[in-house]
């Protein structure tokens, strides 16, 4: 893997998630995501039988993989990865073939009919460039998401991943996902 000076990633402490949807609305506002589509979402899973029930909420969005399948299959290079690891789409190069959507193991992309292009979470790259946090990270009431630079040993995410165990989703897809679900 190429050496990066920065490697942005997310750690998600899903047991803090109360499915309040603040992240979803914040993203919609920040990125002008049209209704019916979403760059991030919350998975729910109910297990067990009455009265021994258990429910889990788990926020998810683009995993900003180390070897992103979407970037590989893109015929025009509209899907690209920044030096800091953020995977993004350049809408002016996107032809709307949706091959990337099919290639994404996390179904993290969606097609915007109104613009004819594919969109996805880019960790609010424009905010990152201003030194701000992604909108979902900033707004979260229970602070489920921890965002930061993995290569910076002083960052919260770096330290928490040294301390706590985590799980990566669908590792077998081989794309090197970078959302660390804390256990």
């Amino acid at each position: 893997m190429a050496m990066r000076t920065k490697r942005y990633a997310l750690a998600i402490d899903a047991k803090k998630c109360i499915d309040c949807k603040a992240c979803v609305v914040a993203c919609r506002a920040e990125n002008g995501v049209p209704l019916g589509k979403s760059r991030n979402w919350i998975n729910e899973e109910l297990r067990g039988d009455w009265p021994k029930l258990m429910e889990v909420f788990e926020p998810e969005q683009c995993h900003h993989c180390e070897a992103p399948a979407c970037v590989r299959v893109c015929p025009t290079g509209a899907s690209y990865q920044r030096a800091d690891g953020v995977v993004a789409v350049n809408p002016s190069e996107c032809v709307g073939c949706r091959y990337c959507m099919i290639a994404c193991p996390y179904d993290a992309r969606f097609f915007r009919e109104d613009l004819g292009v594919v969109e996805k979470c880019d960790l609010c790259a424009h905010r990152l460039d201003r030194g701000e946090l992604p909108a979902c990270v900033e707004t979260c009431p229970s602070k489920v998401r921890i965002f930061g630079d993995l290569n910076d040993p002083t960052s919260e995410i770096h330290q928490i991943l040294e301390k706590r165990q985590y799980r990566l989703k669908k590792r077998e897809a081989g794309t090197g996902p970078q959302i660390y679900y804390l256990l």
Binding site: A22, V25, A29, A135, E138, T139, P141, K143
Partner: peptide
């Protein structure tokens, strides 16, 4: 955006706030 200066709401803005 949430305003972290408020020690009650800290850095949060819920779905409604964002909407």
């Amino acid at each position: 955006n949430p305003n972290p200066e408020n020690p009650k709401s800290k850095g949060m803005l819920c779905a409604r706030g964002n909407a």
